[in-house]
Design a protein around this nucleic acid. Structure first.
Lengths: 327, 327
DNA sequence: CTGAAAGCGCTTACAG
DNA sequence: CTGAAAGCGCTTACAG
């Protein structure tokens, strides 16, 4: 910038004004500055300006998702990016892998880079370590999972409600022996989905927790049908579990005899046989709302923190409408 | 930092030394500094340090992918993130949507934030506008698509080879009437895949270009089978086209009578009926190699730019092994 | 409409 | 082992 000022024969401040499009510069002077900037191939350094700027905003958001390679996180990320771009901000993305150790490390890394807000999915059971950062003015929006030990904006799916809806759908189709297959009970989402299941489920539900991935889901389903009184319907409370269940039912030759409703849509869910009925979440809407909240808080820091619930939709495709079979 | 120094009763430089873990600080002094930092809840500002640091590295990478919500880009992004984390760097992620207008805008945004390297997928037909930035020392690695007008590191799939392999697989199964269905011919990847197809294909191949999405693929396939001499096999040169083709074949009742090989794997490709044979790309390997190249160049700026080809694998699942049917 | 001085939070290049 | 001075590239808060 100094070189540009020298070449154009103006003061630093004038170059700054031209670069930032502030008015009140004589067109002729401005033209000279622009010519000098082009000649020297000048690129302003945004972060250098941040140092002295009154609001100290870096116009950078930190995003922590489960795993950016997974479609749910990908859609959240895309939404955050879209909103950020509209506000002239950039997004630093990190994948958590549900690892509590990583959580603190990733967040520390983002904080050192002075992100204006953090939009984050968490793995630890307590987030009170972020209170001081929040007091310092960093925006905090929790997505997908509600935090503990801190009051902040939260954007989540209607986990319990959606689960109850799924179970009622199965009961409406005549099922009474319904099995729940869910993720690790430490996860807030797993707790909520089980809670919703219990609210709507018949009196003696079958509950299988701690199913961590597709392979474990296959095993869990095989085990269920190895018992004297197997379920007539499955509610799989996570997308990988749904995929594992489809695989297992197919191997067992039960695809067309056991009803299945999954939580969270799966890719090509309409092309498998039978097509799979799911409660579809809206990850783009979650990310969008979260990013909008972050920017709203930058504009009005006194906003009271709130929890936003994004609705899910029952997508009826066939697997959830199979009637109970007499064994 | 000034406050920490004052509270600990030491000089600025000593605080700096403790924060950065430089040796040569008396344990006692260091402890006092750490206590002061905790008490004041001090967070170092990484970018402020960058300003005066000799290497001027921001330890930030810029990533431009097609769309982070799409599984291919997601895997590339995840790989870049993993390598960056190992090197203490963070990643600014942007989605291009194959929009040439966006390309310049997104890149300008990243450059203003002084990324050390740019790892990018491009939509424009020429990237010579990046030469000056490259000369200034910003690392440039092109992924998925080769650039024009600039010499830089490139990491791509073996598009032409993999396409030829796919077509030979179909011919080995007796097919002579094979249709190619591909994306916009402006895209480098589409050109390469068509080139590979032509190398291996029989003398009078059927070529359908400019298929932009799933819906267009459905229409294109329906049209093919509305003709006097329809193909006995399809080579769908992009994942959304593959999905559209599966849908169309199912509607036409031809799923088990027309062979299909897709370029790029699709989710749940093994669970549809028939399971779909594909040339599987390795997006994680592409992202990983690209990020490693970026860091290698930071360490050794004189490295000659090179092109790296990441191999694909034929995944045989059923749809590609259907023999030609007598109509 | 324009510019000189001061300073943001750090690191560098010294001197002790 | 420790610290004072200078300066990175900008913006602020002035004065003219």
């Amino acid at each position: 910038m100094r070189d540009v000022a020298a070449l154009a024969g103006v003061g630093l401040k004038t170059v700054s004004r031209v670069i930032n499009g502030e008015s009140k510069v004589a067109p002729e002077t401005a033209a000279r500055v622009i010519r000098a900037a082009n000649q020297l191939d000048y690129q302003p350094d945004f972060y250098a300006g941040t140092l002295k700027r009154t609001d100290r905003r870096t116009r950078t958001l930190g995003l922590v998702v489960g795993n950016i390679a997974n479609p749910f996180s990908g859609s959240v990320g895309r939404a955050v990016e879209d909103v950020a771009t509209r506000h002239g901000s950039a997004v630093l993305t990190s994948s958590l892998d549900d690892d509590p150790e990583r959580e603190e490390q990733l967040i520390a890394n983002l904080l050192r880079r002075r992100v204006d807000s953090l939009i984050l999915t968490t793995a630890r059971s307590d987030q009170s370590y972020l209170v001081r950062e929040q007091e310092r003015g960093t925006g905090l929006v929790f997505v997908d999972r509600a935090p503990a030990g801190i009051v902040a904006d939260v954007v989540v799916t209607d986990n319990a409600d959606a689960s109850a809806t799924a179970v009622r759908h199965l009961m409406d189709h005549g099922h009474h022996r319904i099995a729940y297959l869910g993720d690790r009970p430490q996860l807030w989402t797993a707790q909520e989905r089980l809670r919703g299941f219990r609210v709507a489920a018949p009196s003696h539900p079958i509950v299988v927790e701690d199913v961590e991935d597709e392979d474990e889901a296959v095993i869990a389903v095989e085990r269920l049908f190895d018992q004297p009184e197997p379920p007539t319907a499955l509610f799989t409370a996570q997308n990988l579990i749904t995929i594992g269940a489809i695989r297992a039912l197919r191997r067992l030759g039960l695809s067309s005899r056991v009803a299945l409703v999954g939580f969270d849509d799966i890719p090509l869910g309409d092309l498998v046989e039978p097509a799979v009925t799911v409660m579809r979440q809206d990850p783009y809407a979650i990310g969008e709302r979260a990013a909008e909240l972050a920017f709203a808080r930058h504009a009005t820091p006194t906003l009271a923190p709130a929890t936003y619930v994004i609705p899910s939709t029952l997508v009826v495709r066939g697997s959830g409408e199979i009637p109970p079979q007499l064994s």
